[in-house]
Structure formats: C-alpha cells, structure tokens
Simulated assay, not measured.
Amino acid sequence: MKTASSLTTSAKVIINKESKSILELPIQEQLNLFKRFGVLLFRDFGVDYDKMKEFAEQFSSKFVLDKDRPIVDSRNKFVTLVDPGMHYVSPHCENANSPFRPDVIWFCCGVPAAQSGETLFWDGVRVWEQLGEELRELFITRKIKFLQKFPPADWKRFLGVGSTIADVKRMLNDISGLSYKINQDQSVSIEYVCSAVVKTKYGHQNAFANSLIAEYKNPRGNVTFEDGSSIASTVINQINQVMNSCTEVISWQPGDLVMIDNSRFLHGRRSFSDRNRRIYSLLSYLK
C-alpha cells in the first residue's frame, strides 16, 4: 500500500500497490488518516458498491437512507446512486438542513463519465478562514433557518415502510432548534434553526460546512435567517466567490472509493452528459 497526495486535490490518496483487498487495510490506521485529512481516496482496490458497504461497516455504527436517491438493489438498501440527473450540484453537507447529519459520506465509482462529472469538494475550515471578517461576524451572530415539507412517502422511506405519525413525533420531539407541524395529508412541515458555522468532529475547528448555498438555489427549499428575513444575494455571491477559490476535484477512475468527513467538507459535482456514469453513495455514523 502507498499513500500519496493528489496533484488536483488535498485528499489523501491511498494507492493499492500490493494487490490487496481493501478489507485487508488496518482499520485504525485508516481512521487516523481520516481524522487528519477528512477526505480519503482509495484507488486501485477495485471497489464496487457491495465492497464499499462491507468496508464501511468496519467503521460505522449506523447507516441512513437519503430520501431522494434511488436504491441500487434490495440486498443493500442503504446503497444508492448519487443525486438523480446530470446537472451541476452546489456545495452542501449531507442532511445539514436537518438535525440528522451523518458523519461520513462514502462514494464509489462504477463508471466515470466520459467527460466531466467529477465530484467536487470544499474544506469548510478553509472556506470559513477566507470568508472575511464581515461575513464571519454575520454568521457568528445570526443563525439560519431551513424550511422543508416531507410527504408521507419521504418520511416513510427515512423511518421505514411501516412507520406511523407516532414514529415521526417520537423522532422529532425535543430536538433543539427544530419545530414541526403534521398536516392534514400527513405530510410533515419542519423548521430547523442552526448555525451555518459548525465545529468539526475532529479538531473542533470552525467550519463553514452547511447546505446554505444548495438550499438557496433549490426551488423546493427555503432558507432564511432565524427571524425569517431573507439572506441577501450579495451575501450569497460573496460566499460563492470564496467557494470558487476553494474548489477541489476528484477525477474518478473505476473502482475508486472516497470517504468524506461530513462535519468539515462540503461536496457537489460538475455537470455531465454521459448517461452511463455510475457513482454510488452511502451515508453513515461512525462507531
């Protein structure tokens, strides 16, 4: 095994030079690298989505299912394809618009796009440092609020097919920063207030690691300051300028596996036109 720094990304690249199975790698050693770097790229291990799940199980206490992503097969119900469509995906942390943010995002590459389609990521610590004093003061002093509405099909996918409104209430009751309403059609409207600045899981550093940009651009989403006032487009533009200067790239090869710290790094993707692209994803909490 060999570790290396990629020319295009600050991710730690772990290259298989000894024809090993990824399952032979020392778990604690990989976890230590993950804590240090936050993004690990495992290359030449020939990982498919079954092997991704098996490898992730060594680190994970629990898997969660994204409500919008298609499940690959019934044997691995937590393994999904990445976001549907071929469009550009804005910087975001997974489920950061809710209190159910997982610790790790796992991606593996079945088939890379013939052109473009790279996964992008941003170091939230670096973004925070480069935002400038005025913006940092703004987001230290003012929280943001995400508003979402989940039809029954969505919350049943998250909680399980046989779940009920009583299960929804048990899950949502007494969560700090969250209020909710059960609608007549059994959809659930949620308001979630949080800081755009989070403390990283490892190192306890300030990170601008959130879903603000993605939800601001999402026609289905709604994000405001805590008091309901709009976030000015000039603020969003300034954040985007910093994001653009901090963009890093994962150029996929078949069999690649990537492990991303969801408390520190935002991720997204470049648009593409190749319908054969297959990138699989998995969300988990660490042990």
Score class of each variant (00 low, 15 high):
169 K>A: 02
142 R>E: 12
81 L>G: 13
245 S>Y: 01
55 F>M: 13
76 N>V: 01
194 C>S: 09
12 K>N: 12
256 D>H: 14
145 K>F: 11
196 A>W: 11
231 I>W: 08
264 R>L: 01
83 D>H: 15
56 A>D: 07
122 W>A: 03
79 V>C: 10
25 L>N: 07
142 R>N: 15
209 A>P: 06
200 T>K: 05
23 L>E: 11
19 S>Y: 15
110 G>V: 11
211 S>I: 09
163 S>G: 09
218 N>I: 00
264 R>E: 00
256 D>E: 13
102 P>N: 07
236 I>T: 13
153 A>T: 12
114 A>G: 12
98 S>H: 00
72 V>M: 02
275 R>L: 14
194 C>N: 05
28 Q>C: 00
45 F>H: 13
244 N>K: 14
22 I>S: 12
89 V>L: 14
172 L>G: 03
186 Q>V: 03
286 L>Y: 08
187 S>D: 11
160 G>K: 02
207 A>M: 05
255 G>D: 12
203 G>A: 14
239 I>P: 03
145 K>R: 15
56 A>T: 14
132 G>N: 04
261 D>Q: 08
225 F>N: 09
193 V>C: 07
148 Q>N: 09
241 Q>L: 14
266 L>P: 08
282 L>G: 05
1 M>I: 15
275 R>P: 14
277 R>H: 12
190 I>K: 00
264 R>N: 01
226 E>Q: 14
144 I>W: 15
113 A>Y: 06
225 F>K: 06
39 V>M: 10
202 Y>S: 07
35 K>N: 06
110 G>M: 11
74 S>K: 05
22 I>D: 08
89 V>I: 15
192 Y>V: 06
139 F>T: 07
270 R>V: 05
48 D>W: 15
78 F>H: 11
9 T>M: 10
143 K>M: 08
236 I>L: 12
105 I>N: 09
179 S>M: 00
146 F>C: 12
220 R>Y: 01
